[in-house]
Simulated assay, not measured.
Amino acid sequence: MSYPFGLDGETLWDAGYHSGLLYASLAHGAAEFLELPSGLTPNDQGGCDVDIEQFRVFVEGLYERYASTRNEVLHGLAHGLLVTSLVLLERAGGTLALTPPHAATLLDEKASLAHSMAV
């Protein structure tokens, strides 16, 4: 069983059920923390539809919070969610400018993770 994330009928990530459900839950929790909509809406296919504009704002907010602190716990908690979100954002046709000192690491990890995220 899968948990697909889609945009306008196109699958961006055909996640495994548990991976997809955990990602969506973490994104909704982080969105609440950031006081932003996540841009992810549960659909009838058992996954989520992505609203690209809301999702871009969410990922931007997550990245800004991540980049603006030196708190190692906050970095650890947000890191996997951020990298996964960057992959989804790119697949949806969105972009986000990353700045040093995190840019190189996040871009490398995004490229590596993207290979594991089935389309």
Rank of each mutant, 00 (worst) to 15 (best):
K110D: 07
A92F: 09
D51C: 10
G80E: 02
G20A: 05
L12P: 06
S116Q: 09
A78E: 12
H75R: 09
G47V: 05
L113N: 02
Y63V: 03
T41V: 12
V87N: 08
A111H: 11
L26G: 01
D44Q: 12
S38N: 03
A114S: 14
D49L: 15
P37T: 07
E10F: 13
V50E: 05
T69Y: 02
V59E: 11
G76A: 11
A103K: 11
M1V: 09
L88R: 04
G46K: 05
H102M: 05
G61E: 04
A111K: 12
V87K: 02
F55E: 10
S116G: 14
Y23A: 00
L96D: 12
S112H: 14
D108W: 05
T105P: 02
F55G: 11
H28C: 01
D108M: 13
V83Q: 06
L34W: 09
G80W: 02
D14K: 14
T69S: 13
W13D: 03
A15F: 01
A97T: 13
Y63D: 04
S25G: 09
C48G: 08
L74M: 15
A15R: 04
E64S: 15
E64Q: 15
L21Y: 12
S68T: 04
G16E: 10
G47K: 04
V73S: 01
N71T: 05
I52E: 14
G9K: 01
S38C: 02
V87Y: 05
S19V: 06
A103W: 09
T84D: 06
H75K: 11
E35W: 07
G6D: 09
S116H: 07
G29H: 04
T69M: 02
L36N: 00
E32N: 14
L74Q: 14
V50I: 06
L12M: 02
A104G: 03
E72Q: 11
V119G: 09
K110E: 10
R70M: 07
G76S: 09
A30T: 07
A15Y: 03
F5M: 03
S68E: 13
L62M: 04
T99V: 11
H18W: 12
S19I: 00
M117T: 01
V73D: 03
D108Q: 15
L88N: 04
L86G: 00
M1C: 08
G29F: 04
A30P: 00
V87H: 04
L74V: 13
H102F: 10
G29C: 08
L96T: 13
G61W: 03
V50P: 06
M1I: 08
A111L: 13
D8F: 08
K110Y: 08
T95N: 09
A67Y: 00
G20F: 05
E64D: 15
L26A: 10
